[in-house]
Amino acid sequence: MPKAQLFITCLGDQFYTKTLQNMTVLLERLGVELTFPHEQTCCGQPHFNNGFESQAREVARNFLRAFGRSDASIIGPSGSCVSMVKHHYPELFPAGTPEHALAAEIASRTFEFTEYLVNVLKVTDVGAVYPHKVTYHASCHYLRELGLKTEAKTLLNAVKGLEFVPLNEEETCCGFGGAFTVTYPEVSRSMMENKLKNILASGADTVVMCEPGCLMNVAGGLHKTGSNIRAMHIIDLLSSK
């Protein structure tokens, strides 16, 4: 039986209780034995991406402590946070040090949710039913840092009743970018508005993505415009029956 540790991410922790519950139920249904290291906080990406590398290192140390106690895989619902652990943790510690070795070892067993399903468990059909017109936004780090180009679509493809409609500029950033939203709020907003324009034009009633950050941004934007298009995390869609 595969074993895994839940990496809930700080945004998930604060804002996406239901998604995390769905992730737990789904993985257990697929036969994964889960644990939840409760000392986890944030991966440190906000600090790392904004130049506060020493602070990022402190936060990363907490993560390494929390997840280093077990050798089970680590699964998170965010391409961006997973990429932080997978690609940037090893950069934070000098090569040759025990911390670097631990970071590299942890990086090698950390997976984004859809990546784990499709590439590790080799599951593409989770038995979901979602009779809606759905479009997909490819989140930047999920797409470019983790290189996940087909995984989400493969999973969506197997959902019963789902009609997939393409999104113009699918791979263009939605304007989230973490602290960018508060550093340059006007720019972030116009990027988001471009994304919304394309979502509206797609004719979909649901837009799905694999990133809590983008989801907060796009869902907030849709809510503000009074649109009834639903923005969803792919985990919630895959949990629909």
């Binding site: 604060q14 209780t17 409760h38 939203t181 907003r189 934007g221």
Partner: peptide, 23 residues
């Protein structure tokens, strides 16, 4: 502040933070 710089462009989702107690 500083979340007003977020909310001036779009609303923010409510803080639920319910997973830990659920688990």
């Amino acid at each position: 502040y500083p979340l007003n710089r977020w909310t001036k462009s779009r609303p923010l989702l409510a803080f639920t933070a319910g997973f830990r107690s659920w688990w």
